[in-house]
Design a binder for these strands. Structure first.
Length: 286
DNA sequence: CCTAGAACCTGCGAGC
DNA sequence: TGCTCGCAGGTTCTAG
């Protein structure tokens, strides 16, 4: 569910409420919530014990909590429906509570991983010298990363024989963009989602990246996008960016630029929302 | 090597 | 009321 802005909101919450606390005990309530851990969920839980959490980091939609004085980090991906919540001990267990982490202090709060669809999960990995969990080395930098290389992204688009929305969702090219922000950025850039990337000029690519950054920063400033209670920050509160969406979910509503009714099209087992007038389909389909 | 599509899950609302 | 269907913000694996 969550894309870069939502994950960053969660990361900030963890930085405030979880960083620098020492794990007393971890409890795995659903085995699938622990990912890629061959030794099993109990081993995963055991390995967190006694370690102090460092400053949380994020790349794209992944976030991780370094274990201080080790070369390992707890990596988290929220998938479609995952939540990381900081809850008082006495708060009743959520229906889809998967993992609970208690701390060795008197703050009376615990960290909970809650996930309805179980596409998300936590895992434990070695940290590479650049501070990244080894298993996400293939994930590209995200557009809010100061070291994101706009020119290299443009050259990659030129090389690909694919369409622009596919490229925006390809986490090895640019990370953090999902279905919502792809549609929003394409609407702002007046680009159809099936435009072939090989036709992109440098100004067009740079303009699109500008829109991606603008829409993500705007969402970040109001706490992210929430359509329902599934996406929340660590305190369980929803963001407000759904009120500012220009494309996503606006089927039949007037385009905010030209008043033409917006359309929804099935696309890769999900949906694309666009304005048929502002975002003309390319003449030749790839 | 590259790209497109299916698979992985659970729950909700619409329509019958 | 209760059933089925379609849909949901992501990643990864496989087939071609």
């Amino acid at each position: 569910m969550p894309e870069l802005p939502e994950v960053e909101v969660v990361r900030r919450g963890l930085e405030r409420w979880v960083a620098h606390r020492t794990v007393a005990e971890a409890e795995v309530l659903h085995p699938r919530a622990v990912r890629r851990h061959l030794a099993g969920a109990d081993d995963f839980a055991h390995r967190l014990r006694g370690h102090r959490i460092g400053t949380p980091s994020r790349r794209g939609k992944y976030l991780w909590l370094p274990l201080e004085d080790t070369d390992q980090s707890i990596l988290a991906h929220l998938g479609m429906s995952g939540q990381l919540l900081v809850q008082p001990h006495e708060a009743p267990d959520e229906k889809h509570l998967r993992i609970r982490v208690r701390f060795a202090d008197d703050l009376q709060t615990e960290l909970r991983f809650v996930d309805q669809r179980t596409f998300g999960g936590l895992s434990l990995h070695d940290t590479t010298p650049d501070g990244l969990p080894d298993v996400i080395a293939h994930i590209a930098r995200d557009p809010l990363d100061p070291l994101f290389d706009d020119e290299a992204f443009h050259q990659a688009l030129r090389r690909k024989r694919t369409t622009i929305k596919r490229a925006l969702l390809d986490q090895s090219l640019i990370s953090g963009v999902g279905n919502i922000y792809a549609d929003e950025a394409l609407w702002r850039a007046r680009l159809h989602y099936e435009r072939p990337t090989a036709t992109f000029t440098r100004p067009r690519t740079f303009q699109l990246l500008g829109h991606v950054r603008d829409v993500m920063n705007a969402a970040l400033s109001v706490g992210g996008t929430s359509f329902d209670s599934l996406y929340v920050n660590v305190n369980g509160e929803s963001g407000y960016f759904d009120r500012s969406l220009d494309a996503y979910g606006r089927t039949g509503l007037p385009c905010r630029r030209c008043a033409t009714p917006m359309r929804r099209r099935p696309w890769m087992n999900r949906s694309s929302y666009y304005c048929p007038k502002c975002q003309r389909a390319p003449r030749v389909m790839p």
